[in-house]
Design a binder for these strands. Structure first.
Lengths: 198, 198
DNA sequence: ACAGCATTGTTGGCGATGCCTACATTGGCG
DNA sequence: CGCCAATGTAGGCATCGCCAACAATGCTGT
């Protein structure tokens, strides 16, 4: 072996996150081991400890990165979307559920209830940014008179719960992903028009 | 020590589940250790293995028991409820969210995506029974003309996603439990009447 | 009644993990 | 150019899940 890796890796933290997300996707969060991660990358078993004080700290970083990408996707969907509230909402829903279907384990991590108190603040901020995408949409639509008045936060809760519920049920294998995606337009339609006949 | 426990415990399996749920509630699923469980109860570290082939098997049993209790609560709510669809739906929502608020870690376990293939079937059945409570309600209401026609399964998905989304967001600390409970009536109302103005 | 057997609990051990401490190597800054 | 903070290494400790061999117990058929 000629190419003995330099003593310092260069960007171990990033490669740890990359590799961790890979095994997260392939084998789930429970199967993630810091020592195995280190072995795969080719560093000593204690090296990860220099970049993440904890296993939980790594998981939190993974979750934070997940929110980052998800929020970007949500924002992009908001720009791409059409004019009417229903179109915009459907686009948002499609973006969110697409992310959920592509990253079920990551999503489970993002919404897990055990975070390091230190990471908690950042994660809470990321959640707020996600909900913010919806709240903006809602507030806009209210200004246009497209949806009912009332506290935008409350309406946001209704919409967010509906979308997140779908995502969680898919991630938990209680619903079939393809079926949900196929019926998404109708789902949003029912959400907007209600279950009661008009 | 006079009362040396008899060699056979009598009902170790049940006490394991009881104790496991206790620590689940207090310290979360991740902190659950078979050995510690055995220590707490006062049996040897391998005794739990006689009743659960796996740690996952214990968790699955815990989850199954959770569904059992939840379904019972949902069914009871269905009986107690009033006449109109909105009243019934609100009662169901209150029952479900009450369970979620009281057992957040258990709920997380119930909807976790890693179950033993063997337990999977039983758990899937339990989920179906839960959704069945909603589907029955929906189908009844359709018969009375109280809500829109269409595949009851689809309508169920909309309602279930809405409720489960709230539950998951509460369990994940993204929403405040008390606020959600306080606004539940209005939430259900919006679900039934839609976000669009009438 | 009792012999035999399946059930349930015990003991000991193996490999793996997370985390800690002490030490080694490196790169950057004064 | 020397020193220090950052980064990686080596070893060790307590714990864990799981397994195999063994012991105590209770049930069942005769």
């Amino acid at each position: 072996m000629s190419t003995s890796r330099p003593y310092h890796h260069g960007d171990l933290r990033a490669e740890l996150l990359r590799s961790a997300e890979r095994t997260l996707r392939e084998k789930g969060a429970g199967a993630l081991s810091l020592r195995e991660l280190a072995r795969d990358i080719g560093v000593s078993h204690a090296a990860p400890g220099r970049h993440f004080k904890d296993k939980q700290s790594l998981l939190d970083a993974l979750a934070l990165d997940g929110y980052e990408r998800m929020n970007q996707s949500l924002a992009a969907a908001g720009l791409r979307a059409g004019q009417s509230f229903e179109e915009r909402m459907t686009a948002l829903a499609r973006a969110y559920l697409g992310f959920a279907v592509d990253n079920p384990e990551l999503l489970e991590l993002m919404f897990a209830r055990k975070h390091d108190p230190e990471s908690s603040a950042q994660l809470a901020g990321a959640v707020d940014r996600s909900l913010g995408s919806i709240t903006r949409l809602i507030a806009d639509a209210q200004d246009q008179g497209e949806i009912v008045q009332g506290d935008p936060e409350r309406i946001t809760t209704v919409a967010a719960a509906s979308l997140h519920g779908l995502a969680a049920l898919i991630a938990g294998c209680a619903l079939d992903a393809d079926e949900v995606l196929a019926g998404l337009d109708e789902h949003v339609h029912l959400l907007l028009h209600g279950l009661k006949p008009r």
